[in-house]
Simulated scan of single mutants.
Amino acid sequence: MERDGAVYEGTILRGRELEPVEGRLVVGDDGRIERIEEASVDSSSIVLPAFVNAHTHIGDSIAKEAGGGLSLEELVAPPDGLKHRLLREASREALVGSMRRSLRYMLQGGTAACFDFREGGADGVRMLREAAEGLEIDAFAFGRESLEAMEAGDGFGASGANDAVFDRERTATREAGKPFAIHAGEADASDLNPALDLDPEFLIHVVHPEAIHLDRIEDRAVPVVVCPRSNLVTGVGLPPIEELTARTTVALGTDNVMLNSPSMFREMAFLSKLSDLSARQILRMATVNGAELLDLEYGVLEPGAYARILILDGGSDNLAGAIDPIRAVVRRAGVADVEAVVFEEPVD
């Protein structure tokens, strides 16, 4: 929703470190955060930056929970994996409608942006644009399969360096000033070096890095997007997230809607209980870090940032009595605890 000159009260998770402060967040008429005031307030709300889902495939919304028991290759490998067959068989109307439902669901859960790897070439990009029309979520389209898809979209999303040679697409994205991202190290380590040779803006998955890959990722400061629920469902294992976070910027994504709901709440809770990362690190992965991948002017609550805010009811039956608000957000909160989703439109 859009509000001009609004004030939001409660426990505010301020700045890049998500420091909990009691007080008020003031939004100016230009849609940007004007200031954060520390003060005693009569509100149990938890005010945090809206989520950035850094890797989705929402075209799969047409086939939720299909393919139980299939391997990763049988599920999603192009061109004949189950999801690609189902996408080819579905009507355009059904695809757009199902994607719109997933985008609406993400909005309800406080997601301000998703980075979607688009199947279907340039027309797939247009379908995402159609599905997102009139919705406040920023659905970034990483075109696939052709340069035309990249030109129509916001970047290029490569399937993996073992699937094809992407030198031409890498050059074209650089010339267009758009990001190039690529799946790498999901099933095994064999495609990590060739993926890194392409100098991507970020990698997806990195479940099986070896020492040489971790060194290259750190030396080149290549960000990584991890999707732990998807990795577990497809049986490829879990990435070494603690080591990755020690080496580079790590963001969080939910991957294929066929396999998982596009819920950042569920992704955070899952990761928090399967890793030694702190709740603050995980919440940064779901907000600040994801926004930094595309230099978005939100994803953090600080003066000057666009006001894209998620407000949780800290007095709900689920969250009341929580001692640590960050742990409560990461490990416990859900859509039922959402009090408001505030996406101010920038006015420059």
Rank of each mutant, 00 (worst) to 15 (best):
Y105L: 14
I204Q: 00
E345W: 14
G67Q: 08
A63R: 09
F140N: 01
V224T: 01
P325K: 07
K64F: 09
A113N: 04
L87R: 09
I33N: 01
E2T: 15
M285I: 06
I182N: 00
F166K: 04
S61R: 06
I137E: 00
A141Q: 02
E38N: 09
P78M: 13
V52R: 03
D295I: 14
A305F: 14
A340I: 14
Q108C: 14
A340G: 11
S102C: 08
G124I: 13
P49K: 02
S44T: 15
G143H: 10
L277Q: 05
N289Q: 07
S40A: 15
P194K: 12
V347S: 14
A161R: 05
L277E: 05
R216N: 06
E344G: 06
L107H: 08
A322K: 12
R104V: 14
V52H: 00
I204N: 00
F140E: 03
L198A: 00
R266A: 13
G10F: 02
G235I: 15
R100D: 04
G59N: 12
D42G: 12
R247E: 04
D154H: 07
R170V: 06
A320H: 15
E130M: 08
D337W: 06
V206G: 00
C227N: 07
V335S: 07
N318A: 13
R220A: 06
V288C: 05
E65A: 14
A54L: 11
G97N: 12
L274A: 14
T245F: 04
I309H: 01
G59Q: 12
P346H: 08
E74Q: 11
N256Q: 10
L252G: 02
S44Q: 15
L135T: 05
L72V: 05
V21N: 05
Y105M: 14
S190R: 10
L232K: 10
H84F: 11
L147C: 02
R247Q: 02
Q281C: 07
E65V: 15
L103Y: 03
T254L: 12
M285Q: 01
A132T: 07
R14F: 08
I282L: 04
A39Y: 12
R100V: 10
L244Q: 04
T11L: 10
G67A: 06
M258W: 06
F115S: 00
R129S: 07
N289G: 04
A195E: 00
V347E: 15
E89N: 13
D116N: 10
V342K: 09
T245Y: 06
I217L: 01
L70F: 07
M264A: 04
E344P: 08
R280I: 12
L283A: 01
V288I: 09
A211R: 13
G157I: 09
E65M: 14
A149L: 11
E292W: 13
A211H: 11
S146Q: 09
S278E: 06
G59V: 15
M150S: 01
E345L: 15
G334V: 13
E186I: 05
H213F: 03
S278W: 09
R331V: 12
F140S: 01
M150V: 04
L13K: 08
G314K: 09
D317Y: 15
C114K: 12
A54W: 11
D255M: 10
D324K: 11
V330C: 01
V225E: 01
P303F: 11
T111V: 10
T173V: 11
R24C: 08
E339F: 11
L238Q: 08
V233H: 04
F115L: 05
E73T: 13
E136P: 15
S44R: 15
G155P: 01
A94C: 14
V41P: 03
R331E: 13
D191Y: 02
